[in-house]
Computed example of a mutant assay.
Amino acid sequence: MNTTYCQHLANEQATCLFGEKLVKLIYNITDKNGFIIYLNGDLGAGKTTLSRGMIQGLGHQGNVKSPTYTLVEEYHLADRHIYHFDLYRLNDPEELEFMGIRDYFTPHSICLIEWAEKGEGILNSADLLINMSYDNNARNIELIANSSLGSEIIKQLQ
């Protein structure tokens, strides 16, 4: 599984729009299968902005804040649940077991995980790896399929 997709995102609005497009593909393709995304990139690279586009793309009307201090923010939308994790402040992967991390990975969930490497050994594998990087005031985004569902999403984007 080595399917990849790259795109240049000119600004915050383009990042949100890409997130909206991506989550609608995920919603339509995965039906009632859970889906896991690892979001990689430096601080400020746009991971939370992309997540906001995805969450609002499925109908959330309120603010989307970074779960840096709470570790997870939950959004219950239509017939899906989006769980947005930020593990930046996680000290030990075992902390995830104490918070009941496995309960979030259901057939009706889309899990967005920032700083997933901090949960190594505990987290389920990602369907899609998303790498975000700076390009002056813009961003570059790279999607890498890590499952057959991830490959199908990338094929639809191409």
Rank of each mutant, 00 (worst) to 15 (best):
M1A: 09
M1V: 10
N2R: 12
N2L: 13
Y5D: 00
Y5C: 00
H8N: 05
A10P: 00
A10S: 12
E12Y: 01
E12W: 00
E12K: 07
Q13C: 03
C16Y: 02
L25V: 07
Y27C: 03
Y27A: 03
D31G: 12
F35P: 00
F35M: 03
I36S: 03
L39N: 03
G41L: 00
L43E: 02
G44T: 10
K47P: 06
K47L: 05
K47F: 05
T48C: 07
T48Q: 04
S51W: 07
R52N: 11
M54V: 12
I55Y: 11
G57K: 04
G57S: 07
G59F: 13
H60T: 09
Q61T: 15
Q61A: 15
G62Q: 13
V64D: 14
Y69P: 08
T70I: 09
L71T: 06
V72W: 00
V72Q: 02
V72H: 01
Y75P: 08
Y75R: 07
H76A: 10
H84M: 11
H84C: 08
H84T: 09
L87K: 04
L87Y: 07
Y88C: 04
N91D: 14
D92R: 11
E97F: 13
M99T: 07
R102L: 04
R102N: 09
R102S: 12
D103I: 01
Y104D: 02
F105G: 00
F105W: 01
P107G: 03
I110K: 04
L112D: 07
L112V: 12
I113Q: 05
E114V: 08
W115A: 01
K118Y: 10
K118V: 09
E120H: 15
G121T: 14
I122F: 10
I122M: 08
L123C: 05
L123A: 05
S125D: 15
A126M: 06
D127K: 11
L129Q: 11
N131G: 11
Y134S: 07
Y134M: 08
N137C: 13
R139P: 01
I141Q: 03
I141A: 05
E142P: 12
L143A: 09
L143R: 04
A145C: 12
L149R: 13
L149D: 14
L149A: 15
L149V: 12
I153N: 08
I153L: 09
I154W: 09
Q156D: 10
